[in-house]
Computed example of a mutant assay.
Amino acid sequence: MSLYEPQCVAPTSCLLGQSPVWSPSEGLLWWVDPKRAKLHRYNPKTTNARRYDLPLKASVITLSQGELLMAGDLELGFFDPSTEEYTRLITLEGEPEGNKINCGGVAPDNSFWFATMDGDEADAKSAWYRLAPDRAIEPLNAPRVIIPSSVCFSPDGQTFYTCDVTEQEIMAFDHEDTRALSNRRVFATTSAGAGYPDGSAIDEEGCLWNAEWDGSRLVRYRPDGAVDRIVKLPTSRPTGCCFGGKDLKTLYVTTARTGLTAWQMDAQPFAGSLFALQVETPGLAGREWSGH
């Protein structure tokens, strides 16, 4: 695999592939397709891919002591790939009608942060939550947006990044402790182009890689928000990325085909597939939710 040249490694044709997670103990890449209520797995050693049926439309997953903590609709639960059994953990209460969980990730203290959104993508009804290791759920003080995406932190844990997709902005906050967010600011914007910022990942140099929906590209931003590198993709709707491989120098990219016209799908035969590319700077090691 050549440096910075994306290749399709799993032609899965997901409607909405997203939330890629690398499992270092297994050497496997996991991701979900909430449109079809599927879990996907890719083994880079064998190049084989596998698909699992899920009892919920999981939008985000993370590792948790040999199982997968997943969130979707308005609930969180555990999925054990070895038995294919799902156990509901928590159902969210008090959310506006039509809301659903859209994104999430593990914070430096190993709590799980996640956000809800309006399922119709019409109103700013999002809310942010923190699932503590003791399974208590607490609200976070992030502003409401129409579509939130991305949960990632700087290497020192002092900056939290997320995306306001509709406004085409990547936001940064000071992360002072396990709950407090302050000094909200625009880290980067994609308004000069056609793309919308979606899922992100951070590398060891503190640079943020972002998948640009409808932009057909990945963008690497330096810690000051300046564009460092642009990688073009052969499909227009990348949704997220994560680092994997033994050296964490493989960047995996999930993509979508939902909403594409027949002509667009003919021009993008690998839309909805999993891509991978080699990068120079390794990513940060992934975190697991510690509340299993």
Rank of each mutant, 00 (worst) to 15 (best):
C241Y: 02
P108H: 04
K38P: 02
A37C: 03
D247G: 02
T166H: 09
E84A: 14
M171R: 13
S64W: 00
A122Y: 08
T87S: 12
R135C: 09
E121K: 05
G259T: 06
T46D: 05
F114K: 07
L274K: 12
K249H: 00
D203W: 02
G283P: 03
G206F: 05
N110M: 04
D164I: 01
C152E: 05
R229S: 04
Q7S: 08
Q18V: 15
Y161L: 03
M265F: 12
L233Q: 00
T162L: 02
K125F: 10
L284D: 11
K45Q: 11
N48Y: 13
R257Q: 12
C8D: 11
I230W: 04
G195D: 01
P81L: 07
W22C: 13
V106G: 06
D247C: 03
N48G: 14
L76R: 02
W113F: 09
D120S: 13
S236F: 09
R179F: 09
E280K: 13
H40L: 11
T258S: 13
V279A: 08
R217V: 04
T83P: 03
G72T: 12
C103T: 15
A58H: 12
A201H: 10
L277C: 04
Q278I: 08
E212L: 14
K232R: 09
T261H: 03
K246Y: 04
T189F: 08
F153E: 05
V186S: 00
A132L: 13
P269N: 09
W263Q: 11
E169N: 13
A142P: 01
I230T: 14
G157K: 01
M70N: 08
T47W: 02
D73P: 05
L54N: 01
G195E: 01
T189H: 03
K232E: 11
F270N: 15
S154Y: 10
L16C: 08
F114R: 04
T255R: 06
L218D: 10
D123R: 15
R185F: 00
T281R: 09
D203H: 00
S13H: 14
P223S: 03
D134H: 05
C14R: 02
P223N: 01
T166C: 05
D214G: 04
C241R: 00
R41M: 14
R222K: 06
Q158C: 09
P81R: 10
P223Y: 00
M1A: 15
V253H: 07
G259Y: 13
R144Q: 14
Y129R: 12
D174K: 10
L74A: 11
A115F: 10
R217P: 02
C8T: 15
N48R: 14
R51F: 07
A115P: 02
S19Y: 11
G215T: 07
S149N: 15
T239M: 10
D123V: 11
L248V: 05
L260S: 00
L28T: 08
Y4D: 11
S19L: 09
G244M: 02
N99G: 05
L181M: 09
K35P: 03
A49W: 15
G193R: 07
F243Q: 01
P269K: 07
Q65C: 08
C8N: 11
Q278F: 03
E84V: 12
R222C: 08
K35D: 11
P282W: 00
Q7P: 00
P6T: 14
S64G: 12
D120I: 09
A211F: 07
